[in-house]
Design a protein around this nucleic acid. Sequence first.
DNA 1: GGGAACGGTCCTAGCAAGAC
DNA 2: GTCTTGCTAGGACCGTTCCC
Length: 225
Amino acid sequence: MVQITMRDERMLDWLAIVRIADIEAIRWALGAYLGTGQPVAVRRANHWVNRLMQAGLLDRARPTFRDSSIVWATHQAIGKPAPNLFRQTTRHEVAVALISARYLAAGFTWNRDRKPSGMLEHQADGVAQKGDHIELIEVELTPKTWQRYKQIFDNHTYRLDRENITQISYYCTAEAARIVNREADKYIFRTQRHRLRAESAYDVRGHWTALNHIKVDQSQDLSEG
DNA sequence: GGGAACGGTCCTAGCAAGAC
DNA sequence: GTCTTGCTAGGACCGTTCCC
């Protein structure tokens, strides 16, 4: 019989939000809920996944387009159907799960952004919160058109002005980071520009590549050291 | 206190890249 | 084409720790 601990429940709650994650994200999320702020060993993460698979709460697959397993919470665990791993957005969703797990490890909570209420509203990939610090997180593996960035940045500026958003962070491929910063320079007013940052953190396959310090705020650091 | 979970180590399998 | 090497996933085992 598999015992479900409080940490297991919190992990399933997190998977209900991000829907799919790879082992790297599982490592960080387990470390977050362990309270260490560091990822657990790969072996440990696989052990955890296997245990919850035995309980019927997790499932995993290794699609041929990825070199690591993808894990998701089953319908039995969260009441949602299994994700389609062959959608074009899968790579993006796995990347979002990884950054969310890193934010959890840094002591943040993670939630989905609100649904857009109109054509001009933009839904971020996630919202990280720690105390009064509320950060909109975007993962950008492929650059958008300048027209789309203008629309998104208008919405970001509005939310920075009118809502309690502290910062907007883009985690991108090198190419996407360059374009996001370029378009942000154009479309975000200088008094707000410093509150949006775009960093190169992924390669084109969605693998985490950032080796240097990633500042969440003045006191946080999500790097692996 | 007993069973489950954890974590370290060793091992094999599968795959890709490079050398010959 | 074959072999070697390197890397990663993941299974098995076992002692330790944790939790109900």
